[in-house]
Computed example of a mutant assay.
Amino acid sequence: MTPVAIVTGASSGIGAATARRLATEGFHVLAAARRTDRLAELVEQITAAGGAATAVACDVTSDESVAGLADAAARAPGPVTLLVNNAGGARGLDPVESGSVRDWQWMYDTNVLGTLRVTQALLPALEASGSGTIVIVGSTAGFTVYEGGGGYTAAKHAQTAVAGTLRLELCGRPVRVVEIDPGMVRTDEFSLVRFGGDADKAAAVYAGVPEPLVADDVADCVAWCATRPPHVNVDRLVVRPLAQAAQHKVHRVG
Rank of each mutant, 00 (worst) to 15 (best):
T119S: 10
Q120D: 09
L122R: 02
L122C: 06
P124R: 07
A125W: 10
E127Q: 04
E127P: 04
E127V: 07
A128D: 15
A128P: 15
G130L: 14
G130A: 13
S131V: 12
S131P: 14
I134V: 12
V137L: 08
G138N: 01
S139Y: 00
S139V: 06
A141W: 08
G142S: 08
G142K: 02
T144F: 09
V145N: 14
V145I: 12
E147S: 12
G149M: 05
G151R: 01
G151I: 03
A154W: 02
A154R: 03
A155T: 03
K156P: 00
Q159A: 10
T160K: 13
V162A: 01
A163W: 00
G164V: 05
R167K: 05
L168I: 14
L170Y: 11
G172N: 09
G172T: 07
P174D: 13
P174F: 12
R176K: 04
V177E: 03
V178Y: 02
V178T: 06
V178F: 07
I180Q: 04
D181V: 11
P182S: 14
M184G: 08
V185C: 02
S191E: 15
L192V: 00
V193L: 11
R194K: 10
F195H: 00
F195C: 04
G197L: 07
G197Y: 02
G197F: 06
D198Y: 02
D200C: 09
K201D: 01
A202M: 01
A202L: 02
A203D: 11
A204L: 07
V205S: 05
Y206A: 08
G208I: 03
V209N: 09
V209F: 09
P212A: 05
L213K: 05
V214C: 12
V214M: 11
A215I: 10
D216H: 13
D216T: 13
V218P: 00
D220G: 13
C221V: 14
V222L: 08
A223I: 02
A223T: 05
W224E: 10
W224T: 10
W224A: 12
C225W: 03
T227K: 06
P229A: 11
V232I: 09
N233D: 11
V234H: 13
V234E: 13
R236T: 09
L237Y: 04
V238Y: 05
V238N: 08
V239A: 09
